[in-house]
């Protein structure tokens, strides 16, 4: 055995084999490493030139009438330079943009574009200036600390969105929407960009880790139904009061009438 090993090491192909193996390892490893790096970088970072060009076309056709050519803004719509790809993706992917009618707040509508088109628009808007970028899957995964997220949510968000994210009213027809059923990436982007009447919670206010905790809390509330039964939309005492008066007393009064009826 020893002999054969020695022999093979001295074989004329040995050098070639070693070189080949070395090349495969370093090259393959490099390729693997770059692939991993690519997948970790935000989408906009790898947005290709043609994606941006496609986005510009869509922008000119659907957005420029209010936001102006090159996103410089008009009296009807704010400039989009520097709002970032995250803002564009939030607004378009949630169906708020393109706006249907002016009003106190842009309403959620059925989404108008395909995912590729939305990516393209986001890439174009992102290319207009430096701004918040679309979060990665890892940043929005609901695997943070729900307890900490709940506390942060109550301190920072509940005064508008309600303690369980059932939504609430703001002045003059504006409102904070309900957060049940809102995808995690939209929640993250909304915190990052402060759409419409919402304040910006940048990474200095709420670190990415804390944003993740908030998303974890909201997803927990969303996916874990109340231990006490049907929740009456999480609206609290008003819904409970209406329930007892209409349903509770509906039943009770029907029963009193039944008991008070004369037997025929």
């Amino acid at each position: 055995m020893k002999k054969t090993m020695k022999n093979s090491r001295r074989s004329p192909f040995a050098a070639a084999l070693v070189i080949a193996a070395g090349l495969i390892m370093s090259g393959g490893g490099y390729a693997f490493a770059t692939a991993a790096v690519e997948s970790a970088t935000p989408v906009s970072a790898v947005s290709s030139q043609e994606q941006v060009a496609e986005g510009e076309k869509l922008f000119l056709a659907n957005c420029a009438s209010c936001h102006g050519k090159n996103g410089v803004g008009t009296p009807n719509g704010p400039t989009l330079i520097g709002v970032g790809a995250a803002a564009a993706e939030f607004q378009v992917d949630s169906g708020r943009m393109p706006a249907q009618a002016s009003g106190p707040q842009m309403q959620v509508k059925p989404v108008q574009f395909t995912d590729e088109q939305i990516d393209a628009i986001a890439a174009y808007v992102g290319s207009l200036g430096v701004g918040p970028e679309i979060p990665t899957e890892e940043m929005i995964a609901a695997n943070g600390n729900a307890s900490k997220g709940g506390e942060l949510f109550r301190i920072n968000c509940a005064m508008c969105h309600n303690a369980v994210g059932a939504g609430g009213a703001l002045t003059e027809g504006k409102f904070a929407p309900a957060l049940v059923g809102v995808p995690a990436d939209h929640i993250y982007e909304a915190m990052l960009t402060g759409p419409q009447n919402m304040p910006v919670f940048n990474d200095a206010n709420l670190t990415p880790e804390e944003k993740k905790d908030i998303i974890t809390y909201l997803k927990y509330v969303e996916t874990n139904p109340s231990a006490g039964g049907y929740e009456l939309a999480g609206l609290g005492p008003v819904a409970e009061g209406l329930f007892i008066w209409i349903i509770g007393f509906g039943i009770i009064i029907a029963l009193t009438i039944w008991l008070g009826a004369k037997s025929n």
């Binding site: 109550r154 969105h161 303690a163 939504g167 609430g168 005492p237 008003v238």
Partner: peptide
């Protein structure tokens, strides 16, 4: 004492 939730109502 610092947070106040939207939709804060008393019982009916």
């Amino acid at each position: 004492p610092s947070p106040v939730s939207a939709g804060t109502q008393p019982d009916w």
